[in-house]
Design a protein around this nucleic acid. Structure first.
Lengths: 208, 208
DNA sequence: CCAGTTACGCTACGGCTCGTAGCGAAAGAC
DNA sequence: GTCTTTCGCTACGAGCCGTAGCGTAACTGG
């Protein structure tokens, strides 16, 4: 009676979707972002680059927004934070990790654009959150936990206050890097990361 | 011999541009941003709302990007920072000032979009900088100077290091507010401003 | 082996927006 | 009055969107 076969729960009949096409489309999207930028990227162009029909794109993604989010999201998979031994070193590490992705031309032009779109599209915002933002936030949570183990930061009893505090730190770190890289359009190099780390760890008054 | 008349240097012959049209267009642009959002806003629609011809828009702005920057920029004119008596209070004031503008629907959808465009358009980035970013940064500079007068922050001798430090602080403050409001999509209320101020003034380790 | 089901490539289409050109009329400078 | 510039209007080619329709390919279950 059990009709389900081996590969997971997707035992649908019919021709399966080509994973090669998926990969080709996402790669073509990133290339198009580099060459054309967000505003001049078109679905038809991506389809041509990927060597697939335009209808194939629309079978998998609702539109440009969703496609670009998925195309850029894979770049955030590489986010990893080695234990650098101290809170300050870890903060600097997180900053440089963020920067290494944010300074790519694909992400530069795409990230702000999809976030702008997400202000009027809740589903898109959720997609961005799970595909990109949460992967970034993970690094902050890891760094905090390490600092707590080291004794550099205290454990917090109140769970919701603890979560709120983590959100605050994340907005400060990610926000500062994004603003530096995209609004000020200045490099997030080791020097800036060092200055930022000093500011965030010891505060404004102690920085001077 | 002196042919120049009173009103400044613009003594051009011919019919002058209508200032009413300017105001109507910018107002219509903001209304369209609220109702439609950035991506669905079109030049033709703005022209119709403003009661002018589409060609009139193109005589004054190169395109949607420039138009929206100017339309949103006027909202940043109201930025003013009363002296609240202490560095912490002033930081909180700056944060709430930024938030009051960033949480409007017009700016929410427009700011990120034009910044995204500016990653591939240097002229647009300059326009954004002078029309929006510099007006924000002014508040940070004012706050720092007041703190220095009060003795809460030291004067810095090295001019370039001082400017770099101000840029850092600005990226942190503005970046955090933008990230909270647009990426995390959570309210920048008095409570969050208080938590942020504590973090930025005293640093991570002292916050707990 | 043979239906049944789904994905694919291709073509074509209506609809919308873009940015510009061309016209006659209006408004201010000289 | 003449010159210059702006204005409203209309019209246009171009490009992109998102979908429909078709025949074919791939895989599943009887």
């Amino acid at each position: 009676m059990c009709s389900e076969s081996s590969p997971g729960r997707t035992a649908r009949p019919g021709r399966p979707r080509s994973p090669e096409a998926d990969a080709a489309i996402l790669l073509a999207t990133r290339q198009a972002l580099v060459e054309l930028g967000w505003s001049k990227l078109t679905m038809g162009d991506v389809a041509t680059r990927a060597g697939v029909a335009k209808t194939t794109l629309y079978r998998r993604w609702a539109g440009k927004n969703e496609l670009v989010v998925d195309a850029v999201a894979v770049l955030f998979d590489e986010l990893e934070l080695p234990d650098l031994g101290s809170l300050a070193a870890d903060v600097e590490g997180v900053v440089l990790q963020f920067a290494s992705i944010l300074e790519r031309p694909e992400t530069k032009t795409a990230l702000m654009a999809v976030v702008a779109e997400s202000t009027r599209d809740d589903a898109l915002r959720g997609r961005i959150r799970s595909a990109i933002v949460d992967r970034q936030k993970r690094l902050v949570l890891i760094g905090r936990e390490r600092a707590q183990v080291r004794g550099e930061l205290p454990y917090e009893d109140d769970a919701i206050a603890s979560a709120r505090h983590a959100d605050l730190i994340f907005d400060v770190v990610a926000g500062a890097v994004v603003h530096r890289a995209l609004v000020s359009a200045e490099p997030v190099d080791r020097e800036w990361a060092r200055d930022f780390t000093l500011l965030i760890c010891t505060g404004l008054q102690a920085t001077a």
